[in-house]
Design a protein around this nucleic acid. Structure first.
Lengths: 220, 220
DNA sequence: ACCTGAACACCGTTCAAGT
DNA sequence: ACCTGAACACCGTTCAAGT
């Protein structure tokens, strides 16, 4: 065939197929040869669109981050300083939802923004909003970091599904308190969602406490 | 050579060498052939000690979890109900330290305990202590989950090191608030440690608030 | 410019053969 | 029981050749 009149591939088609493969069969299932087969081309064809597999993975990761809603950090939203917990809450939920839809790529994404535009935009929006709300820059950095820790950790894997549904695993002599652990996997959605929401609200309450202390110190 | 009089390998030697390879060159660098070369044997030799590469990885993961201190959950420590935040704080620090020493294996470990004894022991100790301190079982499960979310997220990768040290990356037109982000990587330890400690204390404060509400409801 | 097949240095794993 | 070399079906990537 050689070069066709209209190209068979483009970056977007490749990224979409790669993400689907990662979602359905895991990160390890994404090989350039397998992906090429999926796209009905030969293995080396991909190298006309991405220099390396790593560059392709970068594009996949940034497309996932692009799904995170940042609108709550816009100018219109920043009317009053006290709004930051609401913004952070809405953002964290959207962030988690975007990542949890593609858990197998989270370990790559968690390495940080690197030079990926969508990831840098996200970091910029969060940091800018917190500083605008009155947080000192050093604190704003830490809050951005700890929120990423919590969200990536909660999207990386289901807590409930990490416990085998087989009751035989939990020998009462070895694990006296895990007698019901085999039932966790059956309530996967509720357990994981509940843990995320409890953690998020606890974090926001704890941060609000620190924000009040800051304000009190400033007014003296 | 064939079978030597004293075995060349055992599971412990293999696990130690595998963890070193993962730490120094990343999870992708761990191949059975490479590991065998490192141990001065041929590739297939490893299969006398582990059925698959996955089984070997499981052993590596559990050896890392085995480093987490659980002594704060012992009988002696559970004198009074109000002690749970201190125990949780000490445990979270030890948990994070153990994982952050081997960040490249965290994605594997974050999949949950599976059938790994040390991981199950850890889950059992945390859950048992929280229930013993008066938390309802459902809440105790969520707290165990959210703590794992936060700790694995914070050990998975450095937040600071995720931002390239190259100032050119942060074009002011695109990222108006990231003008200093290139300096983050230089303060890697302080930023990551600070974010973890801030997040941990905020979480514990937020949870203490909920614990008080629980106690208030019970006494009415 | 964009695709192909052939080739290189790798993988995980199986298996028969050795002691 | 524990190691070996040979073999199988895979990898990521390069490159010359085609249109």
């Amino acid at each position: 065939m050689a070069r066709p009149r209209t190209p068979l591939l483009n970056r977007e088609r490749i990224v979409t197929a790669a993400l689907r493969l990662i979602d359905e069969e895991g990160l390890a299932a994404l090989s350039t040869r397998r992906l090429a087969t999926e796209l009905s081309v030969s293995g080396p064809s991909l190298y006309n669109h991405f220099a390396t597999k790593d560059e392709l993975l970068d594009a996949v990761v940034d497309s996932v981050i692009g799904e995170v809603d940042l609108s709550m950090f816009g100018e219109a939203a920043r009317q009053s300083d006290g709004d930051w917990p609401e913004a952070l809450r809405d953002w964290a939920r959207s962030y988690r939802a975007a990542l949890a839809a593609h858990p197998n790529i989270v370990p790559v994404l968690a390495q940080g923004p690197g030079r990926r535009p969508n990831a840098l935009r996200l970091a910029d929006a969060v940091f800018g909003h917190l500083v605008g709300a009155g947080w000192p820059r050093g604190q704003a950095t830490r809050i951005g970091a700890l929120m990423r820790y919590f969200v990536t950790g909660s999207a990386l894997a289901s807590f409930a599904a990490g416990f085998p549904a087989d009751a035989e695993v939990y020998d009462a002599a070895d694990y006296p308190h895990l007698g019901e652990a085999h039932r966790l996997a059956g309530h996967r959605g509720a357990v994981d969602e509940g843990a995320f929401e409890t953690g998020l609200e606890a974090l926001l309450d704890g941060l609000a406490l620190r924000y009040e202390r800051l304000a009190a110190r400033r007014s003296t």
